[in-house]
């Protein structure tokens, strides 16, 4: 084993500090007694903000809405993204490349363009803003991440596996369930988690498609303008970190032994 030079170690520590020290400040100011501004060091230590968060109905409404939107958008993306990937991974037809590009475009497009386009479209069609308009907005980019993951895995899947399955008597549905799905399962898990995370903290598209409702990020943004009870946002942020960190950790351990998990042969 070779040892890294000192300069490289310092750079690595510096990089990690840059990424994570701000998170420590979020944590620190959950416990401050000063509610109007963040002074360093905090003047006192208290746990009362956790109680305040627990008692605020607007926070729970925003969390509930965000979870609902992210879940529906992810499920929608898993179904549509997988189907699109299945169609485009290997088939050759006229216009295949433009269609693939159109699928990936929404994630390259600035959110503000997607947002305003959707808002105008909903307006023209006289669709009232609701949970469903937010879901549709989020689905535009959620589909892309699922599609990208699925298409990459499908292209690595040997086409003869599918032929072998059909050769042995399985119809298209059995082949999908018994051969394709187990082999792309971890890619769908990764794509789905990413889609969920993207939806959960999306601000721009949501602003244009939400109407009166607040998802959690929108609630946080509006909270910054208020002068009082600032540590409440910190407490919420810490809870969000915990909630998003756990599934990512779980997915990491699940996919680490990808083949073994996907193929228990049930």
């Amino acid at each position: 084993m070779t040892r890294a030079p000192l300069s490289l170690k310092i750079a690595a520590i510096g990089g990690l500090a840059f990424l994570h020290v701000p998170l420590l400040f979020i944590l620190l100011y959950c416990f401050t007694t000063e509610e109007k501004s963040y002074a360093f060091p905090p003047p006192g230590f208290t746990l009362k903000w956790f109680g305040v968060v627990w008692g605020r109905a607007d926070i729970w409404a925003a969390v509930g809405l965000s979870l609902k939107v992210a879940t529906i958008a992810t499920v929608l993306a898993l179904v549509l993204g997988t189907l699109a990937a299945g169609a485009l991974a290997r088939a050759r037809f006229f216009g295949r490349e433009p269609v693939s590009l159109l699928f990936v475009l929404p994630i390259a497009l600035p959110g503000i363009v997607t947002g305003i386009a959707l808002r105008q479209a909903f307006g023209l069609m006289e669709i009232p803003f609701s949970v469903w308009t937010i879901v549709l907005g989020h689905a535009t980019f959620c589909i892309v991440v699922v599609y990208n993951n699925a298409v990459a895995r499908l292209r690595r899947l040997s086409p003869s596996l599918i032929e072998a399955s059909m050769d042995l008597g399985a119809d298209a549905f059995q082949t999908f369930r018994l051969v394709v799905l187990p082999n792309i399962g971890t890619a769908l898990l990764a794509g789905g988690m990413l889609a969920f995370a993207l939806s959960f903290d999306e601000v721009i598209v949501t602003t244009f498609t939400a109407g009166q409702q607040s998802t959690l990020p929108i609630w946080m943004l509006s909270e910054l303008i208020r002068p009082r009870q600032r540590p409440v946002t910190n407490v919420v942020a810490v809870l969000v970190i915990l909630v998003t960190f756990l599934p990512i950790l779980a997915a990491y351990y699940l996919t680490r032994h990808g083949e073994a998990v996907a193929g228990s042969g049930k």
Binding site: L161, E163, A164, N183, A262, G263
Partner: peptide, 13 residues
């Protein structure tokens, strides 16, 4: 039934 050139064994089974 076919025996494939690359055998096409299902890697997950």
């Amino acid at each position: 039934n076919t025996v494939f050139q690359d055998y096409a064994l299902f890697p997950h089974l």
